[in-house]
Design a protein around this nucleic acid. Structure first.
Length: 278
DNA sequence: CTCCAGGGATGAT
DNA sequence: ATCATCCATGGA
């Protein structure tokens, strides 16, 4: 549930488990009931998958309404991963106006081209390239990874991180508001991407990214027929209504909507077929 | 084939 | 302060 929820984009199904990388290490993970089996250091996997999060307590803190209850039931076990900061930032700079399936492709191409190769059993996985490595590439090379107009932003952001102009680790000391402001100064980072990075890499469980899916959920399930519902209005509502674990609630709503896919897409015109027209 | 996607930056009202 | 456009690309 966690690895398929659109937080990370490089894990691949292998047998009953998944093959991927946690930071610099190639890892195989497999869930057996309520146990997690892994080939890597126990503490490393436990931290990455946030096994210390009190899931029952967090889910109990969600608001009690129909869409939230449905999402909670559907997403049982889903956790917010603790991602490496640069990896998360870079990936979501590449995510704008892209479907999850395509973000996966971009992520894999960047890894294969610029990352480090790791062997695990008879498989090969790649680590995510450092900011230094991306900064040393060119816009042309990045465009060859299918980034399109995002290539310029990724390159510029990588250069700021690689040069030490911005230190992603020390940003962790900042308040939510200050952290968001600093992240939004990076090219290709707006409120949505900043919130994703805050939620997935800085443990800011309040952060509530609003993308096209979540906006549809909010408008159709929480504000049916509401006039003048702008971005600011949605933002204040989500912060107050979903509370201190809003990011968790958001991810549950997102994953549920994306996987069930019912009645959220814009209605298409109904067609009938009439024969014998000619 | 068409539609649209885990948006952001920019310029016009 | 809000709104409209453009930006590349390819899965569905």
């Amino acid at each position: 549930m966690t690895l398929d929820s659109g937080q990370v984009f490089h894990w691949e199904k292998a047998g009953v488990g998944f093959l991927g990388a946690i930071g610099e290490r190639a890892v195989y993970v497999e869930q057996r009931g309520d146990l997690l089996e892994t080939t890597c250091d126990k503490a490393l996997a436990g931290r990455y998958f946030a096994l210390d999060h009190p899931l029952a307590e967090i889910c109990a803190s969600f608001p009690n309404d129909a869409p939230m209850n449905a999402a909670r039931d559907f997403c049982c076990g889903l956790r917010m991963i603790r991602q490496p900061k640069w990896e998360c930032l870079a990936t979501f700079v590449c995510s704008s106006m892209k479907q999850v399936a395509h973000i996966r492709q971009i992520s894999m191409k960047l890894r294969e081209r610029f990352g480090a190769q790791r062997q695990i059993e008879d498989h090969v996985v790649y680590t995510f390239p450092t900011a230094q490595r991306i900064a040393a590439s060119s816009e042309k090379e990045l465009r060859e990874c299918a980034l399109g107009y995002r290539a310029k932003n990724l390159l510029a952001t990588a250069r700021q991180v690689a040069s030490g102009d911005i230190d992603l680790e020390t940003l962790a000391e900042l308040s939510d508001g200050d952290l968001r402001v600093r992240l939004c100064k990076l090219p290709g980072v707006g409120a949505k991407v900043a919130n994703c990075v805050m939620l997935f890499a800085y443990e800011r469980l309040r952060a509530f990214p609003i993308d096209v899916w979540i906006e549809r959920v909010l408008r159709q399930r929480y504000f049916p027929r509401a006039r003048k519902l702008n971005a600011a209005r949605l933002r204040t509502f989500t912060q107050e209504y979903f509370g201190s674990h809003g990011g968790y609630a958001q991810q549950y709503l997102f994953h549920h909507a994306r996987k069930t896919n019912t009645k959220l897409k814009r209605k298409r015109a109904a067609f009938v077929t009439i024969s014998g027209v000619r």
